[in-house]
Structure formats: structure tokens, C-alpha cells
Design a protein around this nucleic acid. Structure first.
Lengths: 197, 197
DNA sequence: GTCTATAATCCGATAGAC
DNA sequence: GTCTATCGGATTATAGAC
């Protein structure tokens, strides 16, 4: 009993706590409408702690973005690995994307809707990030095996997943009546018809 | 010869001049990275003129957004009216969207990529704006005439146009090698296969 | 209507104690 | 590592002359 759970997280735990708070505020009000002082107040930590762990506001956003994108990349890779054949893999990817959107809307909102160029100066655009390249890769392999019609790989990827991504935007904007999962089969079927051989 | 063309626009002309300058800066650096003083300097007008015509920065952005969206709505409506049948109408819409993206990237970037929620507080989301509702309407009529498979109207609209919109995002991010128009036929074909009866 | 000058506020970042 | 107090600067918006 020498170790008491501290009221406030310290060290690495505090770092994660700050990241979680920043995600909530960034995705709610936006990066520019959220000040360091807002994060400080909401997280119940000091300004000094934030600057100690992240250096400045932009680096905090970058750390958050990298963290979320890496987690999403793992999810997408696992979804792809879980399926046999292009069609099943694409369905698994869309299913995972829909689940993430419903269960972690703040995360998906930050990744999909944020104009990262505005505060992540030299970061590569979201299109060329790992998870999106992996999705494109599925279609390219599908083409090599004649499961997918021969076409430009970008066109194939956007045709297969573009509808799903738009539906996620609609869900995040609160424009859909039913939960996103209820559209899964229809959306995946449309995507597949768009590209199948 | 009593009337000399003024070096700097005045009145309504100045209003438009300010809107054009704001669009260029907003779509380049983003709304929050653009200050009133930036617009003042770039447009060669005074702070007073800006506040006289628009009231404050947020109202300036709102006026710009409404203006661009109304113009886009007219373009989309005309594109729809130019075609016979669902397939031709959808092709015309995508063709117009691609042309606009290439010829007026600042406009399309501002409309598509901006997180308007961050600075247009109570504005309806982009999904429920006129041009996007019109695109959904095309698919609904197509369903009524059995040209399009029966399905949720949102799913049909995102399946038909989602790929095209993603391609526009890629083009605006500079991720595509060829001009957007060169993908037109493939993109439209994919969208149509996704929804056709 | 358009201008200049200035006010009021807020923000990101730093300094230094503990 | 975490805290409090504070600085310097930038930004939005206003006041008032022309």
C-alpha cells in the first residue's frame, strides 16, 4: 500500500490525459477556437505541464494527429488482414470505419474534417497517409487478380470507399436518421458494384 | 469624359473586390490564419471599408460562403437541366464539378474543405445545402423511374457522387498527376455502376 | 463611404519557484 | 515535472476626421 493512485495523472499518464482533452476540445470547437488555456482548464493541469510535454500548441496537435492516425492505421491493417479476397477486405474496412465513426466520433471528426494544412504545416496530406494508402493497395491487388476492373488506382479507391467516407461525414454532421451501421451493406454493395470486374 | 474609371473600386465594386481578396486568402492560408489586416493590405483598402460593408470578420466569411454556394447552386441546376435521364444528368453534374475544381480551385477549396462550423456558427451543414440536395434529388427521381436501384436516398447520392468528390479533394491536395477532367469518364462510369438498376 | 489611429482583449509562450 | 505569474505581440473592433 505504499503506492496511492494519484488524484491527477503524472508523467506519461498526464501526457495521455492532455492528448485526450485536446482531442475533445479540438474536435468540438476546432483547433483555432481552442486555446491553450482552455485545455489547461478542462484537463485540470497547468500551462507548464502542457509546454513541458509538447513544446507548443502546434506540436501538441501534431502529436495528437500522429497518434490517432497510427491507431487508425493498425485498425485498417487488421481489417484488411481479416478478409479473404478484395470484396471481403473492402467490406471489413468499411465496417471498421463505420464502427470507429460511431464509437469515437471525436477521433474520426478530427482526422477527417480538420484542415490539417492549416496547422500541420509540412505534414503530408491525409490522402497519402498510411491507412488511405493501404485502402488503395487493396484495390490495386484486386486489379492484379482481375477481381477489379482495370482502371486508375486512385479512381478505383475513391469509387470503392468514396461513398462510405461521405456517409461518415453525413453521420458526423448529424444528417442521418439511422445509425451508420444500418447502411453498411448497401454502401459496401454500391462500392463493390462500382469497381468489380 | 466626366467619369474617370477610379483607380480603386468604390461602393458595390469594392464589396466584390473585398470578397474576392478574402476568398483568395481564406482558401490559401485558411480563415483563422488570415487577419483583417491581411485582407486590408492585400486588397489595398482600409479597415473601415471592410467593417462598413460586412460588420465583422465572421459576417464577411458568411457573406462569401453564401455568395459562392449560390453561384455553385446555379451551376449545378443548369448542369442537371442540360441532361436527359439520370445517367446523363449525373455525368453533367460531375463534369461541372470537375471543371469548377480546375478553374476555380480557391472557390471549391473554400466550399469543400473549410470547416464552416468553426466560423459559421448556426449555418446548416454543407450536406443540406441547395446544390447537394439537388444532387440527391436527381437520384431520387432516378429511383422513381426505376433507372436507379431502390435504396436509401443518402446512400444513392453518396455512392454516385462520393467518388467524384474524393477525386476533387485529391486534385485540390495536388495528389493527382493528370488533370481532373481526364478521369471524368472513369469516375462517372463507376458512380453509375454503383447505383444503376 | 472611406480613411487613420487607437482602444480593448486575448493568446501563445516564457521565467522562475518548488 | 509541475506549478503560478507575467510578458510581448497580434488581433478584432471602434472612434472620429474627411
Amino acid at each position: 500500500m505504499t503506492k496511492q493512485p494519484p488524484t491527477r495523472p503524472r508523467g506519461e499518464a498526464m501526457r495521455r490525459h492532455i492528448l485526450e482533452t485536446a482531442l475533445r476540445l479540438f474536435s468540438g470547437a476546432g483547433y483555432f477556437n481552442t486555446s491553450i488555456h482552455d485545455i489547461r482548464r478542462e484537463a485540470g493541469v497547468s500551462i507548464g505541464a502542457i509546454y513541458h510535454h509538447f513544446g507548443n500548441k502546434e506540436l501538441l496537435a501534431r502529436a495528437l494527429y500522429d497518434d490517432l492516425l497510427q491507431r487508425m492505421d493498425g485498425d485498417i491493417q487488421r481489417a484488411i488482414a481479416s478478409g479473404e479476397g478484395t470484396r471481403a477486405q473492402c467490406l471489413a474496412v468499411i465496417k471498421k470505419l463505420f464502427t470507429l465513426t460511431e464509437e469515437q466520433p471525436a477521433t474520426m471528426s478530427f482526422i477527417l474534417l480538420a484542415k490539417h494544412r492549416e496547422f500541420l504545416s509540412d505534414h503530408p496530406s491525409i490522402c497519402s497517409s498510411q491507412p488511405f494508402m493501404a485502402m488503395r493497395g487493396v484495390l490495386e491487388r484486386g486489379m492484379a487478380q482481375d477481381e477489379v476492373r482495370a482502371m486508375d488506382p486512385w479512381v478505383a479507391a475513391t469509387a470503392m470507399f468514396g461513398g462510405a467516407l461521405r456517409m461518415m461525414n453525413l453521420a458526423l454532421d448529424g444528417a442521418l436518421e439511422s445509425p451508420l451501421e444500418s447502411y453498411l451493406q448497401e454502401v459496401a454493395e454500391c462500392g463493390w458494384r462500382a469497381v468489380k470486374a
